[in-house]
């Protein structure tokens, strides 16, 4: 479904992504693990068009995403849950979710999807009138995820969904990711919490300073000595 070929991204003079290639097949949950600053978020930003690659290709079902304006990528069925949630703090929970469906015109479809998101996240329904800025970190993560689901995307990019959450909430968020995966959504997950990410993923890529150091089935990686030492604290 998603194919990244020989991607190079620069921040000024800094070569942040050095010739990375990766694929995510239909229905897969693939994670991108690695230390802070390895370039995980940069890759997602480049896929979504928020950053421009200097060379390389990003294909979604064969269509080159670098050729379409960033704000139309959502129309192709690819939604992005950004790092740090990026909910609209001054909008209410429901207004945030409606913004998620900004590209939809059919009001009936929007209310259907709103109900679908509230089914996934009953806590959001309880707080639908509350300003998003006043939610807890976990609730904001749910809101950001729910917002991305409002267009029934075929694929989700999820950036550090567990960041800054308590262990209980981390479990809850990962359970939600698994649930979304099981419902048929293709997911590319970026996580610092390699242990949890590998536990639910089909495949994974290990990123080290802008290059892919290792890749393979998540299970095999979680048993690999190098990965265990460097990322799993074993």
């Amino acid at each position: 479904m998603l194919e990244v070929k020989d991607l190079n991204v620069f921040y000024g003079a800094i070569h942040a992504i050095k010739g990375i290639s990766l694929t995510v097949n239909d229905g897969e949950l693939v994670s991108l693990v690695g230390a802070n600053g390895a370039g995980k978020t940069t890759i997602l930003h480049t896929i979504s068009g928020l950053l421009t690659a200097s060379t390389g290709e990003i294909l979604l079902d064969g269509q080159n995403l670098q050729k379409v304006p960033a704000n139309t990528i959502i129309n192709l069925g690819l939604a992005h849950v950004p790092e740090g949630r990026h909910v609209f703090a001054r909008l209410t929970v429901e207004e945030n979710l409606r913004m998620g469906a900004y590209i939809l015109k059919d009001q009936k479809k929007i209310s259907e999807n709103l109900d679908m998101v509230y089914d996934h996240f009953p806590r959001l329904k309880e707080r639908y009138k509350q300003l998003a800025g006043t939610l807890s970190g976990g609730e904001q993560q749910m809101l950001a995820t729910g917002r991305a689901l409002m267009t029934n995307p075929r694929m989700l990019l999820m950036d550090e969904p567990s960041m800054g959450l308590s262990p209980i909430l981390v479990k809850e968020i990962f359970a939600i990711i698994e649930e979304l995966h099981n419902s048929g959504i293709t997911i590319l997950l970026v996580e610092q919490n390699a242990k949890m990410a590998l536990a639910i993923s089909d495949r994974a890529y290990v990123l080290e300073t802008g290059s892919i150091a290792m890749q393979g089935p998540a299970k095999a990686l979680s048993e690999d000595d190098r990965v265990r030492k460097a990322y799993l604290g074993a």
Binding site: S48, G49, L50, A70, N71, T72, I74, N75, A79, H80, P82, H86, V87, F88, A89, R90, L91, M99, G100, Y102, I103, R147, A148, T151
Partner: peptide, 10 residues
């Protein structure tokens, strides 16, 4: 409020 998130919304 947030240009990047706005782009992601379309």
């Amino acid at each position: 409020e947030d240009k990047e998130a706005s782009i992601l919304m379309g």
